[in-house]
Design a binder for these strands. Sequence first.
DNA 1: TTGTACGCGTTATCAT
DNA 2: ATGATAACGCGTACAA
Lengths: 331, 331
Amino acid sequence: MASIKEIAEMSGVAKSTVSRYLNQGSVSEKTAERIEKVIKKTGYSPNQFAQSLKAKKTKIIGVIIPRLNSNAMSETLLGIDDVLQMNGFQMIISNTNQNIDREIESIYSLAKQKVSGIILAATVITDKHKRAFDEISIPMVVIGQQVPGVPSVIHDDYQAGYCLGNYIFQRGHRFVTYLGIPETDISVGIKRKQGVIRASGEYENIVLNIEETSFSSQDAVIMAKKILAGKNQPTAIIAATDNIAVGVLKACCLLDIKVPEQLSIVGVGGDKITDLVYPGITTIKFFFREAGGTAAKSLLKLLEHEQTQEVIVSPYELIERFSVDKPQQKK
Amino acid sequence: MASIKEIAEMSGVAKSTVSRYLNQGSVSEKTAERIEKVIKKTGYSPNQFAQSLKAKKTKIIGVIIPRLNSNAMSETLLGIDDVLQMNGFQMIISNTNQNIDREIESIYSLAKQKVSGIILAATVITDKHKRAFDEISIPMVVIGQQVPGVPSVIHDDYQAGYCLGNYIFQRGHRFVTYLGIPETDISVGIKRKQGVIRASGEYENIVLNIEETSFSSQDAVIMAKKILAGKNQPTAIIAATDNIAVGVLKACCLLDIKVPEQLSIVGVGGDKITDLVYPGITTIKFFFREAGGTAAKSLLKLLEHEQTQEVIVSPYELIERFSVDKPQQKK
DNA sequence: TTGTACGCGTTATCAT
DNA sequence: ATGATAACGCGTACAA
């Protein structure tokens, strides 16, 4: 691969002239032409290492994610990539496999690589995270979690829970189970649950049982079976995620429980799977792709030293399908 | 961030000594100690650009993928990332959004970035691809497609189709529809179909209708409705992908067709969704994650100038669930 | 407008 | 074992 020096020699000018041609462009038309021709002929393109070495910067954004194989993550990445690519930035992905130590490592590692910014999709932010943020002084945006002092793009988990709760209680359900996940995950584990609980407080005579499972649909199937086998069967189950909701539905099929006649089900996420099962599951749709794009834009603004909102709440939308009905008369 | 020069000064030795300490290590114990202490204290770590500038190489592997939001891709990436990370390599993802021109661009772009290898997950390889392969002389592995002269990791699409065909025909189905996708995609569009066709040739009196749809489940629902509404209703549908199979199942639910009593369904891929719908769909499981790992290993071997198999066929496995039965008596 | 010369942080060569 | 020095390819301050 040719270097700028060779281009210079071939065009009969100095390196710096070529460099100027490439960057600011204050060169005479004649030389510009000559240089252009040579560049075309050789297919020259600047060595990015040398450039970065000089500039102490790259056009690379690091994205740290807890896992790769989830719909939410794919969509988020897509959104980030969209706007990054549009602005001439590369995206480099650091998958931590839910290992929180590797999250920290990744931060430092990306810093070493002199990425010009970092987008962190975290489930929880510890003190170690915060220390890392401070040490490396690289613009950063967090997505999916609110961190004081760091621009964050979040989904409205609390409102989503509240909305679903209302949706179910309004239709007359009084024996309801919330099937959530552990509180180690703030957004999903805590906020959504709290939203539902708050809604439950606004109605009379509600019996809200709270159970826990994992993100895995299979686990949800097992858990749902237990819940539905008991004698205090709920008339509705509010699932913390679409995957869990689908697991619940599967359990119903297995136990020959009719949905929505005998049991209503709702989920959160807007995963397309909710539209593929039968009946389609009512869910709260989050706009992961858009949120990813928003995060990326926010970060790019930061790089330009522009102001950014500290926390941006991504919208949500209730998608009504066919998994909810009024409770049957019984007892 | 400290440079090697500063480390040298602080330890009272020359730059070259520090460099030697960092790399080969032929230094006296005493100086080694001194240097170590300084490095610890400053938290020094080499500037990767300067290193790359010298070495004309990186420890980065470029991965080009057609889309980000598919289960197969996520798993494949996961597998690639696994072994890359284990060997101290970074992965940089180039998502082309199914745009074939961007695939070519990505190849050149990655070459410019001096990645030390490229893994290409392509749906089809054109002459432009081949030219790009030749021009940049960077080790490369293709996954999901067989390319003469380039090490390839492929799934056994033909055998998968053949296996599924046999599975269906053996159980007595004679009126069967294959719901595939256009032939622009070689593996999925052509090979799987051919496998099914070959199997159909080994039985008597088979009526095999071949229809086409897209990768989208929604499209599959529509197409399946059409097929099932006609008067020559098949007793089984072989879907080219799990997504399509799920779409067919949804159509059945909508039309009140019992699966598997009235219609048998099979898919290909091993997507976990096949286990979440009801009834679970019989499918051919491909090992995407393992295949990704294999591709990465293969590439790393190439970097070491070791021999590699030209084409590695990833195994598959038939997963029997509950979507297939013998055809009902009728006519 | 153009050219000269230096520095970015490393590694490698060659003396010492 | 260690140190001085050149070279990697680029950008830029400065001089011409």
